[in-house]
């Protein structure tokens, strides 16, 4: 496998490797994905950010053939998924949300057997297996049983398995959900390495930090619709002011704060346990709060993030 950098210079106008037009999926009366449009460019990391039930996984499933679109057009690697099921699957790698490694096979055998599903020559599969175990730092576990691996190791093995066919596009459905922070950082590190090798990554997440760290561009999904799109920075600039004051206090204090901040801050959100004030000048806003004599000791100042974009657009936070 070419784990070395591929010599494809980024073109002046990026080339789309995946295009969705009016893509829709219904299950009976339930409309899981309500007609979305998006384009993924070659070599970028493209994210789907949104809460559970937003339609992210359904969209991923339509890309890798586990769900058939109800309507719309989906072209992956130049091929219409409706007509070229097998050919599309040959060009992509899939890291599913739930572990579905083959427990009857050892770590290394999981990759060897998976490689056979792609009709790859035995020698090539063996060579890639060794390279990929090295890449995901599981070489020492090659002969272990899958059930002996930790959650993070299983996820890394799933990533290695998704790369066995040297895919153009790697689809990752919540690649770090349920992992502890160290394991999560290790996965992020490997994914960044893949983007350096010019692989196209498409991932879903409900962690805004993950989206902000990894994604060149992303869409935010909510209730089957795309409600915002762009690079993380552009989305934050477009939808929220750059600075945030997070006030945490008793109910009455928060009410008073909300009344005071209304009109003074660019935007105010009341999330139940906190009042968030979006502003370009946190210092003077804070001064005004102190002047008004409101007790606001438990206040955090931070930069605005994607979570704030989501909150602005939906009035809800990403992770309930």
């Amino acid at each position: 496998m070419s784990l070395k950098k591929r010599e494809i210079a980024p073109a002046s106008s990026p080339e789309a490797t995946l295009t969705a037009h009016g893509l829709r999926k219904s299950y009976g009366d339930f409309r899981a994905v309500k007609g979305v449009d998006f384009e993924v460019y070659r070599g970028e990391c493209f994210g789907f950010l949104g809460p559970n039930g937003a339609g992210k996984t359904t969209t991923m499933k339509m890309i890798y053939g586990a769900a058939v679109p109800t309507a719309g057009e989906l072209v992956v690697a130049g091929l219409d998924v409706a007509r070229h099921e097998r050919a599309v699957k040959r060009r992509i790698g899939v890291v599913p949300q739930e572990n579905n490694l083959d427990d009857d096979l050892k770590v290394k055998e999981n990759l060897l057997v998976y490689g056979r599903y792609f009709d790859l020559p035995r020698k090539l599969v063996l060579q890639r297996t060794n390279e990929l175990l090295d890449f995901v730092q599981l070489t020492e576990k090659a002969e272990s049983k899958v059930e002996q691996l930790s959650g993070g190791m299983k996820r890394r093995l799933l990533i290695a398995r998704a790369l066995i066919n040297d895919p153009d596009i790697v689809v990752l459905d919540e690649p770090t959900t349920g992992l502890d922070p160290q394991a999560r950082h290790l996965v992020w590190d490997r994914l960044r390495e893949l983007t350096r090798e010019n692989k196209t990554l498409i991932l879903t997440t409900h962690y805004m930090e993950e989206a902000a760290r990894l994604c060149d561009r992303l869409v935010i999904m909510e209730g089957g619709d795309i409600i915002a799109r762009g690079s993380p920075r552009a989305m934050i600039e477009e939808h929220v002011s750059p600075q945030v004051l997070e006030f945490r206090a008793g109910h009455e204090v928060l009410e008073a704060l909300e009344a005071l901040l209304d009109g003074r801050a660019d935007a105010v959100e009341h999330t139940g346990e906190a009042v968030l004030a979006y502003t370009r000048d946190a210092d003077s806003l804070m001064a005004e709060v102190r002047e008004a004599g409101i007790e606001a000791d438990n206040t955090v100042y931070r930069q605005a993030g994607l979570e704030d974009v989501f909150l602005r657009l939906t009035g809800r936070s990403l992770i309930e």
Binding site: Y64, R86, K89, Y117, F118, R161
Partner: peptide, 8 residues
Amino acid sequence: DAIITTPV
């Protein structure tokens, strides 16, 4: 589920 994401 794992197998059907391949050309099989």
